[in-house]
Computed example of a mutant assay.
Amino acid sequence: MTPFSQISMVKSQQIYTTFVNGKVITKQAYDLYQQRFIESPLYTELYNNLEHFIQLYLHIGFTLNFNVEGEFFYISRSEVEEDADTNATKIQAMLLIIARYWVDKGFDLDDLTTPVLGLGRTALEEIAEQTIYDDIRQALGIETWEKAINYLADRNFLYPCGDKHYVLSSAGMYFLNLHVEKYSEDQ
């Protein structure tokens, strides 16, 4: 086990703050200024000191979860399962709306992870105009489409890559692919 003195206190605090604000930590984050994906120093810190952070979060009542396929970390606590389920439902429903819109337009889902393509202003406006999508948003208790997109971005499932332009993170894409696989199995 890595001694506490060898772990960056600043990064450890940033990791904790990120998690308790309901965010995931992805391997790559979109840097708006460099206009490209960059390696996340918080992910690297977690990955390089995994056993330390697993034990740390266990000691403070959380489970550190590592999703290998989606390349992201998140924490959970059994006492807040209902809140987590509500958040997961909102996240998954919004991602599925985006995916359904995207596929209906004839685009490849992988394009949502490409900054040059991604989810732009026109797509967001067209999604907002569809009654069925709007009904789902309202049923989720999200006031506006802007707040829905911010909800995903605030949790690192989407990254802004321009004005009213977003790209899916690896965590967002993981959940989309998971649901596509489930749907394909059911058919």
Rank of each mutant, 00 (worst) to 15 (best):
P3S: 08
Q6M: 13
I7Y: 08
M9V: 13
S12L: 02
S12W: 02
Q14G: 00
Y16M: 07
K23T: 09
V24K: 12
V24I: 14
K27R: 14
A29L: 09
Y30Q: 02
R36A: 05
F37E: 11
I38P: 07
I38L: 08
Y43H: 11
L46T: 03
L50C: 04
F53L: 02
I54V: 14
I54R: 13
T63S: 10
L64F: 10
F66R: 11
F66N: 05
F66V: 03
F66H: 15
V68P: 00
F72W: 10
F73M: 04
E81I: 09
A84W: 10
A84Y: 10
T86G: 00
N87W: 14
I91M: 06
Q92W: 10
A93W: 11
M94K: 03
L96A: 01
L96W: 05
I97C: 00
I97G: 00
R100E: 10
W102Q: 04
V103R: 13
F107R: 15
D108Y: 12
D110E: 15
L112P: 09
V116Q: 14
V116F: 12
T122D: 12
T122F: 07
A123K: 02
A123N: 05
I127Y: 03
E129H: 08
Q130H: 11
D135I: 04
R137F: 06
Q138C: 06
A139N: 15
A139I: 06
G141F: 12
I142Y: 10
E143R: 13
I149H: 03
I149K: 03
Y151A: 01
F157H: 13
F157S: 04
P160G: 02
D163I: 12
F175P: 00
N177Y: 14
E181H: 13
K182W: 10
S184N: 13
S184C: 04
D186L: 12
